[in-house]
């Protein structure tokens, strides 16, 4: 793992990380709630492209999606962010997620891409069903993860 980020809820625990895939990247969010895990994975998504610390969370964008189960909802969540990044030419670094059954409403804060400052390494084409997992572990922590195609 070359990148991991810290959790505001528990500074000792990273709330996101990358895991390897031969051609692409795995993104994983970890949190005390499902929502926190989704938020962490979104940060991991940004970290595929650039260092999230370089992205100033000034501009809010609200998004929503629905799916028949948690895993499909998670892939939809990341794909909604991929779409917003692509069409708004933005990067995001702060997220607030609300999940009710299998309906998600969220706000993502970020700013327009600045190539010189953000030095984006790669764009994400989409979130995949590879290594897809949304579950609560034995210690109560939620994990949300999948591989993203770059």
């Amino acid at each position: 793992m070359s990148y991991a980020g810290t959790n505001v809820q528990s500074p000792m625990q990273p709330n996101w990380e990358h895991f390897p895939h031969q051609a692409d990247m795995g993104v994983r969010g970890i949190g005390l709630t499902k929502e926190a895990a989704f938020e962490g994975a979104a940060l991991a998504l940004t970290a595929v492209i650039t260092n999230p610390a370089k992205v100033i969370p000034t501009q809010p964008v609200t998004v929503a999606c629905e799916a028949s189960d948690d895993e499909l909802l998670f892939v939809d969540w990341l794909n909604v962010l991929v779409y917003e990044m692509a069409t708004r030419k933005m990067l995001f670094s702060r997220f607030e997620v609300h999940i009710n059954d299998h309906s998600l409403h969220a706000t993502a804060w970020g700013e327009p891409v600045e190539v010189i400052r953000h030095r984006p390494a790669v764009e994400v084409k989409g979130a995949t069903y590879t290594d897809l997992l949304v579950k609560q572990g034995q210690k109560g922590y939620w994990i949300a993860q999948c591989v993203v195609d770059v």
Partner: peptide
Amino acid sequence: GLGHQIGTEFLKRMAI
């Protein structure tokens, strides 16, 4: 982006 979005949307439709 067009191809990426079509891939994303139909992957879900076909999986379901």
